[in-house]
Nucleic acid binder design. Structure first.
Length: 430
RNA sequence: GGAGAGAUGGCCGAGUGGUCGAAGGCGCACGCCUGCUAAGCGUGUAUACGGGUAACACCGUAUCGAGGGUUCGAAUCCCUCUCUCUCCGCCA
């Protein structure tokens, strides 16, 4: 039997379609999504019911035949031939109805959390707070695409030569800086925030991407193998969230908090021509990701602490940052509520998004079938999942290079990084 | 990559065409007994979807790695695939 996968509870759509439509309007999604689901649901249930009636009949009569003496079975069975054929036809019909229903369900986005301000697009997002000092310079600060090559830390030309546009090579102290930042962030989250470290596969099967909500709708953002069902992950959120796919977590397991370092791969088709300068947006980048699995009653509080963990990285690195809350119109397909963390890059003079902290509530859990048992013997319920970067790498490197650049062209790293980078924490031209 | 073996419920493990959602054991839950740190006895112990209920109860269907086939009927027969294990080869 096909397992219906839904982002929303079908029952909610069935019983309160007008409410769902109104909520979808807030996230700029059309009401027709609900009607499509309703139509498909009706057709599917009708098909299923008629099929099950036939199967019940067959089971009953087959048992009668089984009770007969062997010699009489064959002739008795002959009369059931047409019923068997009807069942076969009914199965095909039900399968079609089922997949139509599933397709419709998978295209419905998550509903917004009650606390999210209603707005139509990113212009209505709210800056929640601005923290830290936007460093001032007694010289004109340079953008990282000048600092990096001057230090021999970033090689754009060779990146393009070997892999094409949106690729770059980190060299020498640039590569070491990135490695230091990764180690620093992993250590911080593991040792101080209690996350359990995970090193996940960077290639996954398609069903993982359905689970997290990247498929079926956003396949054009992803790379995949041409011959096999391998997809490069766009974020560690995908493999880590799917760690517990199709599992029932026993009492006491929650909350689960994971931190994972992984490379990430994105086609960036939608942003063609944008952010092509520097290392802000590449087809491949590294990221340290935080992922949580929690009981529903805890997910609001867990989002707060997730956000705090991401902000702690900025604080320790001495960067200026701000937190922006997405309005309903700018929520992602999967998030019920979302905050972005942006760091200030004084060279290119931009706020760079380094983390999106989201509570998906049971949206991903339903798609990925991740449940927990509230108590021994109790019925399984869907967990809530959350995630956010802690943080995304190249942009942190940008902010570090630009914030800590010196008049002589060198870069003096903040104290928190020195033990990881080594030496006196200084990058300078060879 | 080559050869072989295997995949059954939380776990172990029976079951080769009919009354098997599946014996038995373990584990677990509840109750009883006992009374001393353990044992005994009893009962229960999957999930999903659909129907049903105020909510339970209850009814139907599906699920014995996955998909397909044979049959009135499949855990059981046939085909394909996936995964696991062992040995060989190769390799970071």
């Amino acid at each position: 039997m096909v397992e219906p996968r839904a982002m929303l509870d079908v029952k909610l759509i069935r019983e309160r379609p007008d409410f769902v439509k109104a909520e979808l309007a807030k996230v700029q999604a059309p009401a027709s999504l609900v009607d499509d689901v309703l139509d498909a649901d009706r057709a599917r249930r009708e098909a299923l019911r008629s099929l099950e009636d036939k199967r019940a009949e067959r089971t009953r009569r087959s048992k009668e035949i089984g009770a007969l003496p062997p010699g009489e079975r064959k002739s008795a069975g002959a009369s059931l031939k047409s019923l068997a054929e009807a069942i076969e036809a009914g199965e095909a019909e039900a399968a079609v109805a089922e997949s139509r229903f599933e397709e419709a369900m998978l295209l419905v986005p998550n509903l917004p959390h009650e606390g999210v301000p209603v707005g139509s697009d990113d212009s209505e997002n709210r800056v929640v707070r601005v923290v830290g000092e936007q460093k001032s310079f007694d010289f004109e600060p340079k953008p990282h695409w000048e600092i990096g090559p001057a230090l021999g830390a970033i090689d754009f030309e060779r990146g393009v030569k070997i892999s094409g546009s949106r690729f770059y090579v980190l060299m020498g102290e640039g590569a070491r800086l990135q490695r230091a930042v990764i180690s620093f962030m992993l250590d911080l989250h593991v040792r101080e925030h209690g996350y359990v470290e995970v090193y996940p596969p960077a290639m996954v099967k398609r069903e993982c991407l359905v689970g997290t909500g990247n498929l079926p709708k956003f396949g054009d953002a992803l790379y995949r193998d041409a011959e096999e069902d391998f997809w490069w992950v766009p974020t560690a959120e995908v493999p880590v969230t799917n760690l517990y796919r199709d599992e029932i977590l026993e009492p006491g397991r929650l909350p689960i908090r994971h931190v994972a370092y992984s490379p990430c791969f994105r086609r960036e088709k939608m942003s063609a021509g944008r952010d092509v300068r520097g290392i802000k947006r590449g087809h491949q980048f590294d990221k340290v990701e935080l992922v949580k699995f929690v009981e529903p009653s805890q997910s609001d509080a867990e989002l707060d602490s997730l956000l705090a963990a991401a902000e702690k990285v900025c604080e320790r690195l001495g960067l200026a940052w701000r937190v922006v809350q997405m309005c309903t119109g700018d929520l992602s397909f999967t998030a019920a509520i979302k905050y972005d963390v942006e760091v200030w890059a004084p060279g290119c003079k931009e706020w760079l998004e380094v983390s999106s902290c989201s509570n998906f509530r049971d949206f991903q859990a339903r798609r990925a079938n991740i449940r927990y048992r509230p108590a021994a013997g109790a019925k399984p319920e869907l967990v809530h999942t959350l995630n956010g970067s802690g943080l995304a790498l190249p942009r942190v490197v940008i902010a570090l290079l630009e914030t800590y650049q010196q008049a002589d062209g060198s870069v003096q790293l903040p104290p928190a990084l020195v033990p990881f980078f080594g030496g006196d924490g200084r990058l300078s031209a060879a």
